[in-house]
Simulated scan of single mutants.
Amino acid sequence: MKDRILSVDIFRGATIVLMILVNTPGTWSNVFPPLLHAEWHGYTPTDLVFPFFLFIVGTSIVFAYSNKTIDSSTYKKIVVRTLKLVGLGLFLGAFTVSFPFVKDFADIRFPGVLQRIGVVFFFAAVLFLNFRWKTLVGITLVLLVGYWLMMTLIPVNGMEPTLDRAPHNLANWLDVQIFGTHNYKADYDPEGFLSTIPSIASSLLGIFTGFILLSKQEKKATILFGLGGAMLLVGHFWDMVFPINKALWTSSFVLVTAGWANIFLALIHYFTDVKKIAFGSIFRYAGANAIVVYFLSSFISKLFYLIKVNADNSIHSWLFNTIYVQGFLSLELSSLLYGLSVVAFYCLLAYVLYKKKIFIKV
């Protein structure tokens, strides 16, 4: 694409690489704290990864659909892509290695990462195609403020609403009513129904960044950096009344993560697009087949956990305990080295696909 901006490709690829790293430690029992999600309120570097991807989905929408003729085929492509993403996510949730290779219906998780990406992409793309930027700003504010008011004012089963991990947390309660047993946990799902509303705002904020990158503005990196700083400031102030929380995808979480996304993207844009300093090519390769690389990593990781080498070990645990657990290494470092090896494999795969000009559209 002639309007393609290198920094966006690098940012997308780096996000996918980080998603794989935090999802595939050698053992979940021994992980360095920055590579784990926050227990509940607050955030760690790991909590930035998924919202970064939704953010860059919005930015990519601007590049994909700006200055193009929009007709029924455009909407058809959006719907088809949405269904593909949701279908792949449901497949990951339902698949098992024993015949008939599908879990019992009650054990299948309906929400998930790819499902959320699909739904967010659909709404963000449709909104982008139908509204100008000023209207999109208003929609974003309505989503964020409306979610805040719903979560803090609407009683649940006659009880005062709470933002704790509890049955009368509105998002948790609603997920149980809608999905029943098809949730990540009995009392919450990090990709649940209600929290999808503010996650759409994460992508809309990425759309505004796309507008800036495609504009004729000078010093785009400075603008993005300042915008990111403002979002961080507002998000942390909002945290005092609506805590930053990934599992609930709170409005303060949306602003803080979009703030960091703008800051990191501004830095990458400055060095690659402005100063023309060559770096991060491996991330660009990963970004070119981002969804495919993520799906394969998730599917193969699941196989490694499910397939047994012997009575005591799956492929995953056998590889980790045999190769990476060594007396001179801490278990945390061993766990990290396993994750980095997985990342290296998928970066190599992405490189081969890129060099062979194989780009799989999802």
Rank of each mutant, 00 (worst) to 15 (best):
F52T: 01
S66Q: 11
L92C: 06
P45R: 06
P45K: 05
R81I: 13
W40M: 02
W40A: 04
T46C: 12
W28H: 01
Y43V: 13
T69A: 14
S72C: 00
V79T: 05
Y65I: 10
L54H: 08
L36M: 15
F53I: 15
P45C: 07
V62T: 05
F32M: 09
V31R: 07
I61D: 00
V57R: 00
G87H: 11
K77T: 10
D47F: 02
L92N: 03
S29K: 15
L36N: 14
I61C: 00
L48F: 15
I61G: 01
W40L: 04
P51W: 00
L92V: 04
N67T: 13
S66V: 10
S66H: 11
W28T: 04
P34V: 02
I70S: 01
F52H: 06
N67P: 11
S29G: 15
I78C: 01
S29P: 12
D71F: 09
L83W: 08
N67H: 15
F91C: 07
T46F: 06
S72K: 03
F63K: 12
K76V: 14
N67W: 10
T82F: 06
I78S: 02
G89M: 12
S73V: 11
S72D: 03
H41Q: 07
K84G: 13
V80K: 12
Y43Q: 08
T44V: 07
L36A: 14
F91Y: 10
R81A: 12
L85I: 04
L88M: 11
V86M: 08
L36I: 14
L83V: 14
S29Y: 15
V79C: 03
N67Q: 11
P33V: 05
V57C: 06
L90N: 09
I56C: 03
Y75E: 05
F52V: 01
T69Q: 12
L83H: 13
K77E: 10
P51S: 02
V80F: 11
F63V: 12
I78R: 01
N30D: 14
P33D: 09
L54C: 05
P51G: 00
L92A: 06
L83Y: 11
F50C: 01
V57S: 03
F91N: 07
A38H: 03
L36F: 13
N67V: 13
L36H: 14
T27K: 11
N30E: 13
L85R: 05
F32L: 06
F53T: 15
L88K: 03
K77Y: 07
T59Y: 07
A38R: 03
V57P: 02
D71S: 12
S73P: 13
K77M: 08
E39M: 10
I56V: 07
L35I: 00
T74F: 07
T27H: 09
F91Q: 08
T74A: 06
P33K: 07
T44Q: 06
K77R: 12
W28V: 00
L54Y: 09
S66L: 12
S66M: 14
H37E: 04
F91M: 09
V80S: 11
W40Q: 01
L85P: 08
V62H: 04
I78L: 00
S60W: 06
V79R: 02
